[in-house]
Design a binder for these strands. Sequence first.
DNA 1: CTGTATCCTGAAAGATACTG
DNA 2: CAGTATCTTTCAGGATACAG
Lengths: 134, 134
Amino acid sequence: MTPTESAPLTTDFFDPDCPVRTIPVLGGRKWAWKIMRCLEGGPRRFSELRVPLVGITAKVLAESLRAMESEGAVVRTEYDEHPPRVEYALTPLGRTLLGPMDAVCAWSRQNLAGLLEAREAYERDEAGRAVGAR
Amino acid sequence: MTPTESAPLTTDFFDPDCPVRTIPVLGGRKWAWKIMRCLEGGPRRFSELRVPLVGITAKVLAESLRAMESEGAVVRTEYDEHPPRVEYALTPLGRTLLGPMDAVCAWSRQNLAGLLEAREAYERDEAGRAVGAR
DNA sequence: CTGTATCCTGAAAGATACTG
DNA sequence: CAGTATCTTTCAGGATACAG
């Protein structure tokens, strides 16, 4: 129910009109995976997040958190204190994403050696090709 | 074993010196998820891939395939024919990535309604805030 | 058919300075 | 503390033309 519009409700990634154009929450955002990981253990303050996220700027962190909030994966709670305190946490929805993420992360960890080897082999072949083409 | 260098061999995504800077194969590439899906059923020719990948240009497809090849997820096979024929296929390594991908895709599919709802709610609140701030 | 070679655009990210 | 405001950079992606 709640038929607001004729929303197709598809996740067919091959449909150019898919309402979720790329992978939700994680797609097209460099820091999203790491931010999810940082919130895994419980609510964190803005400045707490900046510590493990080495190199992120306040601007990018704020933008990322807002985007993830808009997708329902993160909730922002502002406390009326001085100095101000704001906490970010995973929503129940966001938390359900941790499992699928783990699958990909585990794969990366387990196959890192193979990935590095592939890269080396590829670069070796590239060099060989370049020499052969002389 | 095989101590080629002092390679840290870590997939700690919080390490800025991690040899695999973003999520391997899938990270930072708009079409990688879809390309993986297109190769799932077996080897495909370049022009075959362009059909389901609506909107991709030859340049971007070639770049993506080369990158995924360099990471060992895809193998390129060139047949010496006229007109030329080239086939792309998943490597055994690439194939092991399909499972983890499925987990994320299933999550997207199952939570699409919640994601759309969250987005609507977020935009409603934004509008409310804008009015309230008048 | 399977690309490459250019050139261009746009969106995300980064640097820096400043504010409630 | 928790951001916002600008400006600049970067680079994946796109358009078009051409080549083996």
